[in-house]
Amino acid sequence: MTALPAHTEKKLGLVIDLDTCVGCHACAVNCKEWNTGGDLSPLSDTDPYGADVSGTWLNRIHSFEVTDGDDARLVHFPKSCLHCDDAPCVTVCPTGASLKRTEDGIVLVDEDRCMGCGLCAWACPYGAREMDPVAGVMKKCTLCVDRIYSEDLPEEDRIPACVRTCPSSARHFGDFADPDSEVSLLVAARGGYDLMPEQATRPVNKYLPPRERTVLPTLARSADDGPPLTGFWKWLDGALEKLP
């Protein structure tokens, strides 16, 4: 059913910490590794060993330069489905393949009903959905629904693959409907925010901003701009000038 639930019992999602993400792409790699081998069709690659390699990914890591006066910093920016409360990708689906679950709020694609029209990917402002050219169906983050409820995996592995693999703990998984969950506390403490709030999608996933840091003086000035030399250094400077 493509009608959005008025309320979900849980709101499972991710917190992504842009302060600690080191841009290693391990989350994307482990996501692809896990999700290409599950119950759904594989995440295909076209021309995988050629010059024009391209593939289907559920998680991609963009990098942005953020400038502030003389200061500039690099912010690595992982992006996957935000499991929006008002998910526009769900309501546009004509076949009922797109759905948002009432029990935990996860947005999923039922591949057996997807006709590959691509309209949901147009409706998503974030580019979280990608058409798989081989399977002919729409692919998106499942929040590793086959891990988080698994009874076969060890307890510590019952979290999304991207969270499990992140070496800098930049990714956190939990229930945003519970105000005392780790993710809710993180968002409250660090000012977690929504991407493109003006699109009125009410994303569940939140991003934590990079922390304030000490801005060091720039080294881009020429040597002439330095303080005037005195004493021995002034003599040495002059002596060096006289040499041929």
Binding site: L18, H25, A28, D52, V53, S54, G55, T56, W57, R60, I61, H62, S63, F64, E65, V66, T67, D68, L74, V75, F77, G118, A121, W122, Y126, G127, E130, M131, P133, Y193, D194, L195, M196, P197, E198, Y207, P209, P210
Partner: peptide, 30 residues
């Protein structure tokens, strides 16, 4: 790009590097 990333003001944020070195379905389609 500022609202898309939540990082600063429009003039302050710019893409440094794409996720991958080739085109993907998103860049071809949209």
């Amino acid at each position: 790009v500022a609202t898309a990333t939540g990082l600063g003001q429009p003039g302050d944020v710019s893409l440094f590097e794409r996720p991958h070195v080739t085109e993907n379905w998103l860049t071809e389609e949209m």
